[in-house]
């Protein structure tokens, strides 16, 4: 935290009083979120004779578990990457657009959020079929020699997931880019910096906080998604979240379910923490 930001913070007494505004939220989260989470954690380290790590030992010694973890990480990273590559330019365009154009873009990004994931996933089922739009397009343009099914493939899953999570990549980047003074790039240009140099030394460092929150949002959501893989790839392909769901709902195996849930939680949290740490390092003096 810089000196300027620190000096802007309200003085002790006032800050303490304002903090009471968070009490309802904290109370609510404690009851419906933290408490069940503690039960879940406790369940994963409890055996017939009390505390034990045997569930984890058992889980990690099974090669199938490693395949599920790898599936989760791979799909999460690919989805995040697709969202980043598509979302970053869109966020910049949106932040720099003016008037009606900006409103139109914002609506186009936010409106799809009001459509349920299940509806979207079913729509993707139609698009990704062997005789779906994507297949027809790729055959028509000669990229594919014959129609193929994308549904129930990893490509289809990543495409669908990226579609659902894209706004969560765009919006944090957009809100940061919007605050960057366009004069900064002009100042860089008049100092002799090429467009690429300006992007690297001015734009990117200033956008980093938005990039990190976008990545953290999309990654944590895509490693823990349940409905989308269930509908777009099916039971053959398991991720940590779907396995957790199956353990609880189908197999009635609370021990396995709570173990996979904890593994997923640790995975997601550590990636988010690592990315914000990395951002601080890269951000230099920020």
């Amino acid at each position: 935290m810089s000196a300027a930001a620190a000096s802007l913070a309200p003085t002790g007494g006032q800050k303490d009083r304002v903090a009471w505004l968070a009490v309802p939220a904290v109370g609510y989260l404690a009851i419906v979120y933290a408490l069940p989470l503690v039960f879940l954690l406790a369940r994963s380290v409890t055996g017939p004779e009390g505390f034990t790590l045997s569930l984890f030992v058992q889980f990690f010694s099974d090669p199938y578990s490693w395949r599920v973890i790898w599936n989760t990480l791979r799909i999460g990273l690919l989805t995040t990457l697709v969202c980043l590559v598509i979302g970053f330019p869109v966020a910049i365009a949106m932040a720099r657009a003016k008037g009606l154009m900006q409103v139109a873009l914002l609506v186009a990004i936010i409106l799809p959020l009001s459509i349920g994931v299940v509806v979207k996933a079913f729509a993707w089922q139609i698009v990704l079929r062997r005789d779906g739009v994507v297949s027809q397009f790729l055959v028509g343009t000669g990229i594919w020699s014959e129609p193929q099914r994308l549904l129930f493939t990893e490509t289809g899953l990543v495409l669908g997931a990226a579609n659902v999570f894209l706004p969560f990549m765009i919006l944090p980047i957009y809100s940061v880019v919007k605050l960057i003074d366009p004069r900064l790039s002009e100042a860089g240009a008049t100092l002799g910096a090429s467009p690429l140099y300006r992007f690297r030394r001015i734009f990117l460092p200033l956008t980093l906080p938005g990039l990190v929150s976008g990545i953290a949002f999309v990654f944590s959501m895509s490693v823990s998604m349940f409905v989308i893989p269930s509908l777009l790839i099916g039971d053959r392909f398991q991720m940590l979240a779907t396995l957790t769901g199956r353990s609880f709902l189908l197999m009635r195996n609370e021990a396995l379910g709570s173990t996979t849930a904890v593994v997923l939680l640790v995975l997601a949290v550590s990636i988010v923490v690592a990315s914000s740490w990395l951002a601080k390092r890269l951000g230099g003096t920020q």
């Binding site: 004069r183 100042a187 860089g188 008049t190 100092l191 002799g192």
Partner: peptide, 16 residues
């Protein structure tokens, strides 16, 4: 602008 060798001091300073 980056090939012009013309420096600018902006009204808002535009410091990085």
């Amino acid at each position: 602008p980056h090939h012009r060798d013309v420096g600018v001091v902006f009204q808002s300073y535009a410091l990085f």
